[in-house]
Structures are given as C-alpha cells and as structure tokens.
Design a protein around this nucleic acid. Structure first.
Lengths: 343, 343
DNA sequence: TCATTAACTTTACGCGCGTAAATATTATTG
DNA sequence: CAATAATATTTACGCGCGTAAAGTTAATGA
C-alpha cells in the first residue's frame, strides 16, 4: 500500500503497466491471463490497493455474481444455522450471498424477492414460508430468476426442491416410540404455516395405522412463529385439563416440544424415560437447543448439510448452464433418530 | 402492467411523456417534482413496471442508500433479534440494510467489512466480536466509512457506541440475589470473547464488595461461541466435583446459564426458589429462550430496543450531515430485572 | 394582465467498466 | 530460426443513469 488513491481501472493500468482490457480479463478470471502478467498484476495490487467498482462491473456484466438466500425466519436458530452453511458454500464457489429473512410474513417474503430482483441475482435459494406464501407472486419471481426451493415445498414452483423426507422421519420416531413404550399422540398447531407440518401429520397417522394403533391428534390454537410460546401455553392447558390417551407425546417440531417440556416442568410433571417419569415427549428437527432442554429432547435430525449442499450445487449448475431444468427435481433426505432423555 | 418491457429510463420517459432528467429527480425524491407530474409518473409506473437499475444509480450517486449491519453471530437468537429490529428501522428510513454475520471469527469480521467497503455503504452499524476483533483493521475501516458500534465496545473506534450498562445491570441482579438469599458466585469463561464479560466480572466484584460479601469467580475453560455447550460441560464438572461456597450462581450470560441449568438437571440438582431446591441460577441478557428453561431463568434484560433505535438514529444523522462526530458518543442503557423461577 | 418564479425539456457530458476488432507482441513448436 | 498460435495492446463503443446548462413552458401573484 503506497502512493495516492487509484480511482479506476485506467489508473491501475497506468501504475501496473498492464492494459485496461487485460486487467478486466484478469478480474473476471485470473486464470485467463498469462502467468507472467498475472504476477505483474498481483504485485501491483499489493502495492496499490485497487478494487474494481462493483456497481460498474455489475452494470456491464451479463450476469452478476449475486445469489439470493431467503429464509422464513432468521430468529429461529435452525434457519440461521442452515443460512450460515449455505452462505459458506456460496462464497466458496466465488459468488456473493445476499441473506434476507422473511420474518414470518408473506409481505416481507415478496418484498425480499423484489429487492432481490433489483439486484439482478444470478440465482436464488428460497426457503418459503409455505402455506402463508403468496404463491402467484413467488411463482412469477421464479419464472424470471433461476430459483431453487428448500425446506418447504411449493408445488411446481422453482427449478428444484430439497427437503426432508417427513414420511420417513416421522415413521422412524413413531416406530421407536411404539417399541419403547406407549404409542404417541401427536401435538401440533391446528393451522400450521409450514407445509412440512401437514406432511408430518399425515405421516403420523399412516405410521400409527401401520403399527396397529389408533392415531390421536392434539391440535392447538396459535398463530405466528412463537412456537415455544404456543407449546408452553397450550401444552399447559392440555397437560392439566385433558386426559391423554397415552403417556407419550410426539410434537410436530422441536420448538413446540421445548415449550411443552417447559409447561410440563412448571406443572410438576416429570418427563423422561425412567420409572419415576410419567410422560415422554419427542420432537422433530434436532433444533440447536434441543440438547439443552430438561430433560434433553429425543428427536429426529434433518440432514440439512445435504440439503444445503445439494441446493447450492443445483443453483450453481443452473447459473453456469444458463438453462432451466428440463423437469423439476424434488429430492428428500432422510432423518436420523436422535435419542436423548425425554423419550 | 402491459406493453413490452422497458429497459431504461429513456424508454420509460417515452411511454410516460416525462423527460428523463425529471424522472431521475422523481426517483431520487418523489416530492421534488410538481404534483401533477408526480401523478403522471405514478400512473405510468402502474401501467409499465419500470425500476431504475440500481447498479447504474449507485455508480453515479455520490452516496448509496446502503447501510451495513454486521453482527458477531446470527445463530445466536439474541443477535438475530436485534438485527431484525435494526433492519426494520433502516428500511423505514428509506435505506437498504445489508446484514452480515461474522460467525464468531475475526477473519470473517474483516472480510465482512471488506465486502461492505466494495458496496460503498453510506454508513455501517457494527456489533464487533470484541476481544477477538482485529482492532487496527476495524479502526481503518471506521475511519473511511461512518461507523457506529453497538453491543460490544472497541475503545475509540467508530463515531459512537451504544450498549448496556453492565455495571448497573450486574449490580441490580447481585443486589437482588443477595437480599433474597445467599450471595452469588460468578460463573464465566476464563477468557471471554466479549468485552461486556470483563465489565460484568468487574461489576460483580464491585457489587459484592459494596454489599460486604466476598466475591467468588468460577472461570471455566472453553473457546468459541458454543456457550450452552461450555456451560453444560463445565457446569457439570463444577457441580459435581467442586464445593460451592454458596447455593447461588450468577452466570455471565444467559447462554452459559442455559447450559448450566441443563447440567444441574442431568445431575439431579434441583434449581429454583422453593425449599426443596438446593441451587439458584441467574443469567444476564434475557435471551429469547430463557423463558422456556426448566425452571425459567431469572435474568436481566438488555434494553436493546433503545440500543437499536439510538444506533440507527445516530448513523442516519451522520449520513445526512456527511460529517463525523465532533466527539465520540458513548451511551449505556439500563437493564431491567426479570424475575423468574430459577433464582 | 403581465412580470416573476418555479418547474420542466433539450442537449450534452461523465461515471467505471465490459467487450469487440484490429494490430502488435510474445511463446511455442518442429 | 521461421512459422504458428497464444496473448497483449490500442482504439472505440456501449451500458443506464446523475447532473449541469440553456432554453421553454406552466404556475403564481399583484
């Protein structure tokens, strides 16, 4: 670092002794120039600290290097974790991730897509809100910008979807619960936002049927994304006022389970596996906090490393080929049983 | 929406019957044109769906409308929450927030600042890692771009700092704990990343002295941001192997407390206020999950609405005035006692 | 009504870079 | 060493918009 500020590529061409078009080539792909010139350029870069103006670059390039990443709710550590993983993969591929959270609202989701549109992203990875999403507008966006969905599916929208095999994972935990104790009742929200919730409900009913048990749904009221709060409030209600058919509760997701565990504790109901416990509780997702509940939460983990990897891989392929998929890909990954103290 | 695509302002000028320079004025500030022309423009916008190219705009404007927002770790719901609040305020002011997480690493923090620099933000709100931050490089950035720090202070860096008054808040909870039972020992990491942790340690020692008690620090090993894990692992160790001088533990932050609560539960140590409990645990921050621990966590809340509001307000003022602060502002907000079941 | 002012149109240039075409310079190869 | 291929340079234009200057039109007020 020395000398006075260089304000454009012209200036850097002067001090480096390399012509501007060659510099332009270099910045687009360092390997596209001869080794000797590359070394000259990099030597000059060390001395002079110049970087191409991103705005001028993006105005002229056919495609930007931006990849949008939209998640439904960043205050949920589950999504924050996936986002982090995906961001890392995008950066490693030489692209620029732009992270946006829909904060649980469909208006925000659309406004996220709109601000992405104005940034002209090469592609977008979208975990939609689900049931609440304004499907038409999301579809319109996805028809203009290469879009890959993950976590929650919107039928027919985007080039591909990567998510969890709720059928498999629910079956896994229902089987486990049945063979290790009483069959579970299913604790969920009456009108969940997330389409996975519906799949899990259906999968629960099917699994119970297959094992020869009567399914039993506990569907509680509650809106929004404060799942722990809903689990706590409604959990307290059903634990105190309702006679459960069995001593085992499977929650539609870990965050509900966290609230429910808290409610059980408050009401002096001992949860766990040993003989002194009167209730078993299990969840789904392997939420980052589920290791630290009391007792720690038995659950099913989602393979979100695979979801992230395949999602990024797919959007990169779409960007590179500049084509759309011949047919929409839909891949579900299997969950793994995570046995802990609560069931 | 009709007609064929309009690709630039020239084209929109043609269909709207308004000259391009006037349109340019309008898009920079709708109120800068006569009402009648504004209506014409907005009528045309409804029909034709045109938006100025952000890259061309930002290349030519003296200042962009971008405001960078850097937090140490988005997977911590505490920061995700603040980020969300701040983002909302920035959008309301007509600016464009760019959210980046440093994931707990100083290299990432610097690389966040560098990618912000290339986006030429009008200003930046930065919650630095703290002790781990590469101070020189952060300072260099802050001298080029108007920067306001929050949450964690780096002495002398940036135009202003907004955070919590750890002295007041720790004093508050120490006093509460002392008057409601045995005086607390202080549970913390030996070498915390966060400068607030040091302030809290000092504040604890001072508060205990003031109340005539002997301070007692439990400083555990552990690196990184997995505070729950550290609290759990080291908590289990001290709860089982060490004889504590009192039955009350004040944790340096809620996430350590969450881990510690979990460790206590696993080891059959009953935590809480009633006579059957043998341990009291308190935290600091009012973490989103602290309501749902077992028992729920007594803690001190940070006034992060005020921190967010004042931070945004200040950066906007700096941007508007295009000047730096005459002198660095440092404002600390008071915490509030949140009494729950654990202490 | 006409003078005054505010707002608009026309014209033109600049921002920093991508990129194409023609030409000049290096490497590579037998 | 000459022929050929690979890479650089020179020159020039375009991207979409901000913005200044000069001229024109519309609103305002006594």
């Amino acid at each position: 670092m020395s000398d006075q500020k260089i304000k454009n590529m012209e200036g850097f061409a002067a001090v480096s002794g390399i012509s501007r078009p060659t510099l332009s080539k270099y910045f687009n792909d360092p390997d596209s120039v001869r080794k000797s010139t590359r070394q000259k350029i990099e030597a000059a870069l060390k001395k002079h600290d110049y970087r191409p103006n991103v705005y001028a670059v993006n105005q002229n390039r056919r495609q930007t290097k931006n990849i949008g990443l939209v998640v439904p709710n960043l205050t949920d550590p589950f999504f924050a974790g996936i986002a982090r993983t995906i961001e890392g993969l995008i950066v490693k591929a030489g692209f620029n991730p732009l992270l946006l959270s829909s904060h649980g609202g469909p208006e925000q989701e659309i406004s996220n897509l709109e601000s992405l549109r104005s940034i002209k992203p090469a592609g977008v990875l979208l975990a939609p809100l689900g049931r609440a999403s304004f499907e038409d507008q999301v579809a319109a966006f996805a028809s203009e910008v290469p879009t890959v969905l993950f976590d929650a599916n919107l039928e027919g929208i985007g080039e591909a979807f990567f998510g969890s095999d709720n059928n498999q994972s629910i079956n896994l935990i229902v089987e486990y619960l049945c063979r290790s104790g009483e069959p579970p009742v299913f604790f969920e929200m009456k009108t969940p936002i997330n389409p996975n919730a519906y799949k899990r409900r259906t999968a629960y009913i099917a699994a119970m049927g297959r094992l020869g048990h009567e399914p039993h749904l506990i569907q509680v009221d509650g809106q929004g994304w404060d799942f722990e709060e809903i689990g706590f409030r409604e959990g307290a209600r059903i634990l105190t006022q309702q006679k459960l058919p069995t001593n085992t509760i499977l929650c539609s997701n870990d965050r509900l389970a966290i609230g429910l565990l808290s409610a059980a504790f408050e009401n002096g109901i001992k949860v766990g596996l040993d003989a002194t416990a009167s209730l078993r509780i299990a969840g789904h997702d392997d939420h980052p906090f589920s290791r630290f509940t009391c007792p720690s939460l038995t659950t099913v983990s989602q393979d979100y490393d695979a979801i992230a990897a395949r999602g990024v891989e797919t959007i990169l392929k779409l960007i590179e080929s500049e084509k759309r998929m011949q047919r929409r890909e839909e891949t579900l990954f299997e969950g793994k049983l995570v046995m802990r103290g609560s069931a």
